[in-house]
């Protein structure tokens, strides 16, 4: 029952995202067809442009366009790109894997960095090491991704020459973009983890576990970690949005193809079908991730489980 209700809410969120994008796109002056064909170089007459508009269905009233698009989306037809004339589904399917790999690696990297960092900041040896680990995330939270990307290229590609700027392949091509995308995720994640570890360590039960003769490792793994996890996975769900925004910037700066660069091009050309498809896809991703997290809470915390009937 609970799961069904949550899935219902998720579907509603995706629907609202779809509608909002549609309305926003309509509110913009001009449309993709004008942007594509109005250029004097093409030498098309207004009548010819008008014909194209009829062809794309842009002359119909808004509510009919809305219903048509919605119906098409529901049947899996994302339409055709105005700019390239290609099938939008095909464009998205081609762009998606590169972005998923980038985002996945970036997210993994973020977690791999944030977790030990938070551990060292709370359980680590030496006071100076703890305070160092505490100040690092605050610094990186305030670094913009595009600047970081440029700095990384400057240092690792131009100065040190470790990674070629052009023509890098496979893993080599992934390292710097993944690093760029991971920092804006890793830093706030580490901050939240440190805070919640601190908060858990302050609770009376920690002293009681210590009084049973537990080592710091035992305390961390058997008692504290799980308690500190809940705020961290909440923020991880919110940071998923950061991942998408990060992909846009990172792919542009590093000249990678993917969903991010596809979006940038589509927005530049007012290629509404592509934008619409990207937004729906992203919101589905966002909603699915947060749904998984919501369903995870009761697994972690027995207090959130429903009372057995």
């Amino acid at each position: 029952m609970y799961v069904l209700r949550r899935i219902g809410q998720a579907v509603l969120v995706v629907f609202i995202a779809f509608t909002a994008t549609f309305l926003l796109m309509q509110a913009l002056p001009g449309d993709g067809i004008l942007a594509r064909y109005e250029s004097p170089d093409l030498g098309l007459t207004p009548a010819q442009i008008e014909e194209l508009r009829v062809l794309y269905g842009a002359d119909e009233p808004i509510w009919r366009q809305y219903l048509t698009t919605l119906g098409n989306f529901l049947t899996g037809d994302f339409g055709t790109s105005i700019q390239t004339g290609a099938d939008v589904s095909e464009l998205v399917v081609t762009a998606l894997p590169a972005t998923v790999v980038l985002a996945g690696t970036g997210f993994l990297l973020a977690v791999v960095v944030a977790v030990p960092l938070a551990g060292l900041a709370t359980f680590g040896p030496f006071g100076w090491l703890q305070s160092l680990m505490r100040s690092v995330p605050a610094l990186f939270v305030s670094i913009p991704a595009f600047w970081l990307a440029i700095m990384l290229i400057q240092i690792f590609s131009f100065r040190l020459g470790w990674v070629p700027v052009i023509g890098a392949e496979g893993l080599q091509a992934l390292i710097l973009p993944a690093l760029t995308i991971s920092v804006p995720i890793s830093a706030p994640l580490a901050q939240v983890l440190i805070r919640s570890l601190d908060e858990v360590l302050d609770r009376p039960f920690v002293g009681v576990v210590r009084a049973r003769g537990a080592s710091e490792w035992w305390l961390l793994w058997r008692n504290v970690a799980k308690n500190a996890l809940i705020p961290a996975i909440t923020i991880a769900g919110v940071l998923f949005g950061e991942l998408v925004a990060g992909a846009v910037i990172t792919e542009e700066v590093f000249g990678r193809t993917g969903l991010g660069s596809l979006t940038v091009d589509a927005v530049g050309n007012r290629d509404i079908p592509v934008i619409q498809a990207v937004v729906v896809l992203t919101s589905i991703g966002f909603v699915v991730i947060n749904l998984i997290i919501d369903l995870l809470y009761p697994v972690i915390d027995p207090r959130l489980r429903r009372a057995k009937a």
Binding site: R203, P204, F205, G207, V208, V209, A211, N223, K226, N227, I300, D301, P302, R303
Partner: peptide
């Protein structure tokens, strides 16, 4: 301990 309500690991 003093306060049984906060002295057991809730998880």
């Amino acid at each position: 301990p003093q306060d049984p309500n906060n002295s057991l690991n809730p998880l």
